[in-house]
Amino acid sequence: MNITLRVWRQRNSDDTGQMQTYQVTDVSPDMSFLEMLDVLNENLTISGEDPIAFDSDCREGICGMCGLVINGLAHGPKERVTTCQLHMRSFSDGDVIDVEPWRAEPFTVIKDLIVDRGAFDRIIQAGGFITAPTGTAPDAHAVPVPKLDADAAFDAATCIGCGACVAACPNGSASLFVAAKVTHLGLLPQGQPERHSRALDMVAQADLEGFGGCTQIGECTAACPKGIQLDLISRLNRDVLGALAHRG
């Protein structure tokens, strides 16, 4: 099939950038979206043009490196897939497809479709961990964890930190990302000692980074390739309220 692409091109973070149109011919429905871009880039390189820069690494939907806004939707039209797992069979011959980078002030565009997501790392630094220096751990069976808690913690821990939640949120909020980590660690007995400080510090860091607030619209969950549920944000709020009450 033949596809028309309108792609965001921006030389660097100082450039203003604009949408540019490209034609891609002979697209196989079995190609992944990124492979279709690979083919376009090969052609651009041969004709001496600058290939389109985009991030991707594992290309199996787990590393969280890739992420494009396709036709206005983070990770494209298909539910619960990353961009690298979106295949061209989700489109039709003759389609015009818009491709843009994640947009949020804390996610600066570095080039074309690549953004800086360092803010997420800094949010984790603020409290997204359990303090357990190497060698200090008791036997793994010392503390049993109810299976339901372990499973729920796992569900939250599947967050891949891709940033689709922020890209999709009309408020540019990182609440789902923060909530996923607070929930993962807060559900486990090992995470209890730092539960209050973790919630407060991570939320404070997200504010400091310039992410917006949550108004419970739910676009984050709809865009999340791992299906992280919106109720985790309620859980985060309960932890924050609990922490504030505890702190007095």
Partner: peptide, 11 residues
């Protein structure tokens, strides 16, 4: 070590 860090192993 991993359990202490909060790795959610199957239980």
């Amino acid at each position: 070590q991993c359990v202490a860090q909060g790795v959610p192993f199957a239980r």
